[in-house]
């Protein structure tokens, strides 16, 4: 039930201040998503969506950082394990 998927924001509708929505593309399937709790949302951003609500924006920098950390750990452990 905590399933949440990433999708790309293709348009944002802020006409109702109590219910901000966006059209979000999930691999070709476009759905309406409530984005009420996402600050500074822009078209082209990725959001992670659960039961029709965006939980958070996906942080591109953090995504890259994760792979950097993984690479670093892999190297670090290679050194430790290898010698």
């Amino acid at each position: 039930m905590c399933l949440a998927l990433p999708g790309k924001v293709i348009s944002i509708d802020e006409s109702n201040p109590n219910l901000k929505t966006a059209k979000v593309n999930f691999n070709g399937v476009v759905k309406d998503v409530t984005v009420q709790w996402i600050d500074d949302l822009k078209v082209g951003d990725y959001v992670i969506v659960h039961v029709g609500f965006a939980l958070n924006k996906i942080d591109e920098k953090e995504a890259i950082e994760t792979f950097r950390i993984i690479n670093e750990m892999v190297d670090l452990t290679k050194r430790e394990g290898g010698e």
Binding site: I48, L55, N56, D59, E60, E62, A63, E65, T66
Partner: peptide
């Protein structure tokens, strides 16, 4: 935090 792309 492994899931930094979604979690602050």
């Amino acid at each position: 935090n492994q899931y930094g792309r979604a979690v602050r």
